[in-house]
């Protein structure tokens, strides 16, 4: 599955647009990591546990979006956009959406 965040995929021809697909997930880290992040807040620096959390979520959102696209018979998703929102303390929602297309060389 090719993913692109522009309207085209270079060197490929879009033969069919199929429609909107989206993938989303809500995840949280366990309380231990939340506490460590709280301490880290005092000193500053990267909160690696949350970086990891968001990265995992983003991957899952993309994989869910790809599943939807595959179900429509697409082989690429173009114009992909992300949207992140904090849903509850320590949990975040990641949404990925784009247009499923069929491409040819």
């Amino acid at each position: 599955m090719l993913i692109s965040n522009i309207e085209i995929i270079p060197n490929k021809k879009i033969v069919q647009h199929l429609g909107l697909v989206q993938g989303s997930t809500v995840r949280a880290k366990h309380a231990g990591k939340d506490i460590m992040a709280g301490f880290k807040n005092i000193f500053g620096g990267e909160l690696s546990s949350y970086t990891e959390l968001l990265q995992e979520s983003r991957e899952e959102a993309i994989s869910r979006m790809s599943q939807q696209a595959a179900a429509l018979g697409a082989n690429a998703v173009i114009n992909v956009r992300f949207s992140t929102s904090a849903i509850a303390a320590g949990a975040s929602e990641i949404l990925a959406y784009g247009t499923a297309v069929v491409i040819e060389d």
């Binding site: 879009i14 033969v15 069919q16 647009h17 199929l18 429609g19 909107l20 697909v21 989206q22 993938g23 989303s24 997930t25 869910r64 599943q67 939807q68 179900a71 429509l72 499923a100």
Partner: peptide, 16 residues
């Protein structure tokens, strides 16, 4: 046209 004439019907159990 290579654009769809209607929205696709997506499987329900992917995002939930």
């Amino acid at each position: 046209s290579n654009y769809p004439s209607e929205n696709p019907q997506l499987p329900e159990d992917i995002n939930i």
